[in-house]
Design a protein around this nucleic acid. Sequence first.
DNA 1: ATCACCTATGAAAACCTTTTCATAAAAAGT
DNA 2: ACTTTTTATGAAAAGGTTTTCATAGGTGAT
Lengths: 332, 332
Amino acid sequence: MSTIKEVSRLAGVSISTVSRVLNDTVPVADETKRRVLNAVQKLDYQPNAFARGLVTNRSGGVGVTVNDLSSPYFGTLLKGVEEVIEEAGMHLIVASGHAKAETERRAVEFLKQRRTDALIIHSEELPDADLLNWAKGDIPILVIGRYIAELAKSCVYLDNETGGRLATRHLLEKGHRRIAHITGPLSIHDSRERLVGYRRALEEAGLNYEEDFVVEADFMEAGGQIATKRLLERKLDFSAIFVANDQMAVGVLQTLREAGLRVPEDISLVGFDDVLLARYLYPALTTIRQPLFEMGQAAAKLALAALDGKEMGVRRKFEPELIVRKSVTSIR
Amino acid sequence: MSTIKEVSRLAGVSISTVSRVLNDTVPVADETKRRVLNAVQKLDYQPNAFARGLVTNRSGGVGVTVNDLSSPYFGTLLKGVEEVIEEAGMHLIVASGHAKAETERRAVEFLKQRRTDALIIHSEELPDADLLNWAKGDIPILVIGRYIAELAKSCVYLDNETGGRLATRHLLEKGHRRIAHITGPLSIHDSRERLVGYRRALEEAGLNYEEDFVVEADFMEAGGQIATKRLLERKLDFSAIFVANDQMAVGVLQTLREAGLRVPEDISLVGFDDVLLARYLYPALTTIRQPLFEMGQAAAKLALAALDGKEMGVRRKFEPELIVRKSVTSIR
DNA sequence: ATCACCTATGAAAACCTTTTCATAAAAAGT
DNA sequence: ACTTTTTATGAAAAGGTTTTCATAGGTGAT
């Protein structure tokens, strides 16, 4: 691997000049530039990223943490991030938090130590305090898929309340009156907001909110199964369930089927996220779409803006959209 | 951000000693060690990765390229890679090649310039020559999901021929005789092997291989649709299709349905990959499972081994497995 | 023709580690 | 008690860039 020194020697100039040509910082005589470029090509020279980072204090990397690398949520999000990061000539460093507070914390610390220029955090378990704490440091932090009031300018998130309302209202419009709700972990802001939306929609329809109809779960497929069993045990005679994410909806679907209930004939279902899967489930899942790709892009743009010290006019709050498929039926 | 110098001053020792304590290279007196560790903690010192890289010439990063970050294939693979990479205290740098030869090449060059310690390449479009060329360089290259004879020791791949045979044989066992096959791009070794497996199975059953029954496609959902249309136009009266990956199978399913054909009643279908999706399709897709997670792990282990100059006894050729679901019916 | 001012370039410092080499002190051997 | 070996530590070099400061040569103005 050749160094700048070798290039300078071959081109017959000083290393400073080589650096100047390569970074285009200061005008260099055309003839000199030509010679340098020639030498660079001949030696297949590539600047040493370490040396460069040492002096510029920039790694050119953006760190991303995510819960579970294999979750369908992740891919789309990451794709959005990558698109804009790559365009800016930077790269992506990923670490998984495995949906545990402790490992999520480790993942972030890890990336911080790696001197990533910015950090995009998708975390479900970490308490707000941790995020707040990191945000005080000197590396820009972006939070995705979560809203933290004190970090409002760095959060890219969905209007979850509207999402919850949309889902519930859709069921109401189809004639459902006894609507259950399986929430995500209520420690998470998003879950709470979706619940609020559910409640609001009920109230708007003049219906009472009843605690029995709500079960807290964990956003995972297995959690959906457990929650459904709990719900069934209560014998509430509900005709529909609003499930706080698609992944749980998969579990719900299974458990319902095992219990001899058909979807949507016996029970209607609305999910949340519109993960790739939702479209292919049987029956295809009616759900609330989160524009994950766009949100990924937004987070990346904000990260870039923060690096330049600019404030960019990037949208941070995204609106959910009802995607009607086959898992809801009209009753009466 | 504090430096080693500040730590050394606070601890009242030289920077060499601090380095030694931190890297545990050479014994240091307990008392000194204590003082250093104290100072480190007090200053929240974190070694500068650039400076360290500059001298050790190690970045601690492993580069991974994939076709499409949002593909379901990717997540599982990456999860496997991450698990072992993270355990080794290293990190993951990802770049997407967007399934185009030119961008794939760019992605790899990009990672190389970033001085990743090793490179795990999942590429579909790149010609063997490129891979071979990079492999000559000084950074270890691992190829995943593809077999290149000259790089045999660095390839983690599936026994695709057996996979193709398994799929076809399953259909034969269910009584199918007129079996079509939608292949991946035949420029790719894996696609060719699956085709060979298909052919072999037919031969073993004493059936003739007929070119009309085979259509080449591109591994994408849309490609599956186009291929299916072509197949239908030929009016071959086939009763089953072996599709070379699940993603195309989704497109096939749609097109078949649009043409008024039911799966599996009218046409049986076998996919390949056993991507997360397959399980949730309607009807649930019978497919050939690729142990992607395990393959990701293997690639990462090989990368680590290459870094240590060791040859590890890691399995490189993986066996596919038939996963029977609901997309195949018996006939006659 | 002389002077002031650009312009292009080079020399050297700075960035922060790891690691080699040297040395002082302590331990072991005679 | 004296020499030799071991152990713990420090000083300094090396690693490859970017960037500041200095300087030589050239350009334009008077």
